[in-house]
């Protein structure tokens, strides 16, 4: 356990930057490389790193398994329902982002961000749920 010290302190130093980088990748996906998928994986990776260094129980206190598993379908729901306003208020074309603003670029940036939020939710929670499922089997 003494040897863990460097890993523990190092992890604590890295974690906030990892999470900020993940959200940078998410919100900056329109301009730089990346997007919801990559950001979701980075978020999941930061939680997995936390679980590896500080133990599975500590990670489950931060991100409870029940919530993580409910976020998996929620992301798909966010994505799927992002297309509905276009059908109700717009010209009836599903996933047409024109309804999110008056100017084309602006509206489509909002639409992409909304859709990517669904992707980030599903990807991050799925990766973490899979890790929990494997780690649970190992500790029993």
């Amino acid at each position: 356990m003494k040897l863990d010290l460097i890993l523990r302190v190092g992890t604590k130093l890295i974690l906030p930057f990892l999470l900020i980088f993940a959200f940078y990748v998410h919100f900056h996906g329109d301009y730089g490389p990346g997007g919801g998928f990559q950001a979701g994986v980075i978020i999941a990776a930061s939680f997995i790193l936390y679980a590896i260094i500080f133990g599975l129980d500590a990670a489950k206190r931060v991100a409870p398994q029940a919530i993580v598993e409910r976020l998996v379908p929620l992301g798909v729901l966010i994505y799927a329902s992002a297309g509905l306003p276009a059908m109700i208020f717009g010209e009836g074309r599903y996933l047409d982002y024109g309804v999110y603003g008056h100017e084309f670029t602006h509206a489509h940036e909002w639409g992409i961000l909304l859709v990517e939020s669904g992707v980030i939710t599903t990807v991050a929670s799925t990766m973490l749920a899979i890790f929990y499922a494997f780690a649970d089997r190992g500790t029993r």
Partner: peptide, 27 residues
């Protein structure tokens, strides 16, 4: 005048249906 990262534009906008399918596959 789409967002500058064309990959994101194609993935989430032009090919929005495909990405919805991919998200469902991950789910």
């Amino acid at each position: 005048k789409m967002p500058p990262n064309m990959v994101t534009g194609v993935l989430a906008d032009y090919r929005g249906y495909d990405t919805l399918g991919e998200t469902t596959v991950i789910f």
